[in-house]
Design a protein around this nucleic acid. Structure first.
Lengths: 368, 368
DNA sequence: TTGTAAGCGTTATCAT
DNA sequence: ATGATAACGCTTACAA
């Protein structure tokens, strides 16, 4: 049903419909002041010729490409792929295409991708930056490219931000351990120049302080948000004779490394070493029926970021930057007989100094 | 160091360097017939102005966008994210950007993405199609968009293809079970209209036949390549009183569903039910120290597909379509005392009818 | 409601 | 080795 000789242009459609190219353009862009009959003829011509607008020409003229870039640190982590799906769904429903860029937490790769993104003239960028230094995002700021920072805050640039509540999540996790009687709790966190690593550390300290437990510097370890880093730091700690009763892994990749190190040493989880972490695993309740985690609303984070960005692109004069902090959920896994249970609690931000009795606010909804 | 008033164009660079825009274009495109001194001046001007070429203008004129689309069925599966990284690395090293499109094994989504991809005028497409019907890829064929099909073969269109050797892999997996004494082996495969599901089923039958085991239709189940499907089919089978001694999951997502169903019924793996599957899990040796799998070279598949595509884009008159089948590896996991071991065997394609004694050809390389 | 004219930034072609 | 000119397909501004 599609006749093609070379590739139909707007002029071909115009000729076939007996109108001028401008009218076709109006139909394509949904301009209301077009005679319905004319619109019909144009639409038929479009269908008959299998016409598809040429985005290059369109964006050369209109200065918009209808494309976004999503720059992520680790495409193999399901947390990030879930974020990506949120962004994708929001973008697709608005007719935007998404370039997915994987930096591997590597600043050089991030820089290369940002250059690419600039030359591709994307309309906007959603980025989880490798670190909190705004200087590394200078290209975006200087060229005034609409940007939303996701998951991690940035220092020195007032820009839209969508994050999970790392502080409340970390505090709730550590409080959970404390409520189970643990007092020697190690934390294996991420790099010092990422806000998520910082916040989770702050939450850890807050929970300890609130329970009158003096922090032990030997139990505070920092590396990267990677499996290998979690494995290495755990091994170092254990090999140095430091033996906490519980470990808080600052994300799921680190937790995998911790599991690795513990299993190599024959330490059973949770009997000989309790483990909690940020970000869940798919199928976690079957694979790790013991694991208490804080999950962030990854899909919603992606969707929110994309919507924020798209709204900004639509409005001519954008409002002041917004900082969105999405609440997290605490999932406590336990077995009752042979049944596995997930108890879920929504976490709300509470002031740091001296919080009320309980941080676990909302209501339980067991899964299966 | 970057002076900007609006946004530098090729003309601004030309003025600053005291040459014509054409010369700047020549420098940008690496045309050799440019005086080195001129080239220097131009390059300095580019740097001074922070000039970045406008891809829209460039592709409007040159008919090339230097972008590819990668269309995948499940971005949450590490197999596919690994493929994506292979494609990305190859593309980036050639200066191409990649649009990642996630179809969720959903034909409607696939169609929408292909339309988007066409209007974005990408130079080429790498696609793992939802099914083997070439009709669903008609847009690509009709518009003569350079295409590489990955992971799954297509019926009715002669097009470049990069796949793993599902047949040899499936056969080796089932042979492994048989060598352990299993004779009631169930298979939970994917949809009938995907070549991977078909090939793995064929390999399953081949191994049974070669061992003089009559296939039992109640043990052959087909659904989708998804966790939920694996869970559901396993549950159905078990609830119907069908009780094999081993299950072959046709991919890793299905295997997760099988694990789910087995655990719900208190069946221990591998003591009460052996399990094998196609495609590995990250950290599998720790999480599933019992699991024997066939891994496909996902990264290489992506890289090969991208290289094939890029080569085709470079050469004016492309040669006949190529079909690449990459060999797979069998990984047998076992514990020796408290140590875990991975024994790896490379698998080579063998003729179907009556293969020689052993399918396991290459040499063992234990991991840790 | 529709059309005319101009131009977005680059590269192909031809000329020097 | 370099430049002048036109054209890619579309949308904006203005005119009718």
């Amino acid at each position: 049903m599609v006749e093609e000789e070379s590739l139909a242009t707007i002029t071909d459609v115009a000729k076939r419909a007996g109108v001028s190219p401008v009218t076709v353009s109006r139909v394509l862009n949904g301009v209301p002041t077009v005679n319905p009959a004319t619109r019909d003829r144009v639409e038929q011509a479009i269908k008959a010729l299998g016409y598809v607008p040429n985005v290059a020409a369109r964006s050369l003229r209109s200065k918009r490409t209808r494309s976004l870039a999503l720059v992520l640190p680790d495409i193999t982590n399901t947390f990030w792929t879930t974020v990506a799906r949120g962004v994708e769904d929001a973008a697709q429903s608005h007719g935007y295409a998404v370039f997915l860029c994987n930096t591997d937490e590597n600043l050089a790769k991030q820089r290369r991708y940002l250059d690419l993104v600039v030359s591709q003239q994307v309309d906007g960028v959603i980025i989880a930056p490798c670190d909190s230094d705004a200087g590394n995002l200078a290209v975006l700021r200087d060229r005034e490219i609409a940007t939303v920072v996701i998951d991690r805050r940035i220092e020195g640039w007032e820009v839209d931000t969508v994050c999970g509540d790392s502080l409340a999540g970390a505090r709730a996790l550590v409080q959970h351990l404390i409520s189970l009687g643990h007092r020697q709790i190690a934390i294996i966190s991420g790099p010092a120049n990422t806000s998520t690593a910082e916040d989770r550390l702050t939450g850890y300290y807050a929970a300890l302080t609130e329970a009158d437990i003096a922090p032990d510097p030997r139990l505070v370890l920092r590396g990267e948000f990677r499996v290998a880093s979690g494995e290495q730091l755990t091994s170092q700690m254990l090999d140095a004779g430091v033996r906490p009763t519980a470990i808080f892994a600052a994300n799921n990749a680190i937790a995998l490394g911790v599991i690795d190190a513990l299993e190599k040493r024959g330490l059973r989880i949770p009997q000989e070493m309790a483990l909690i972490c940020f970000d869940d695993f798919p199928q976690a309740s079957r694979l790790f029926p013991f694991l208490t985690v804080v999950v962030q609303p990854a899909y919603e984070m992606g969707m929110n970021a994309a919507q924020l960005l798209l709204r900004r692109l639509d409005t001519a004069e954008p409002p002041a930057p917004r900082h969105i902090v999405l609440p997290t959920q605490l999932i406590i896994r336990y077995s009752c007989g042979s049944r596995l249970h997930d108890a879920r609690y929504s976490l709300f931000s509470l002031p740091l100094p001296k919080p009320p009795e309980t941080q676990v606010v909302s209501e339980v909804c067991p899964t299966d």
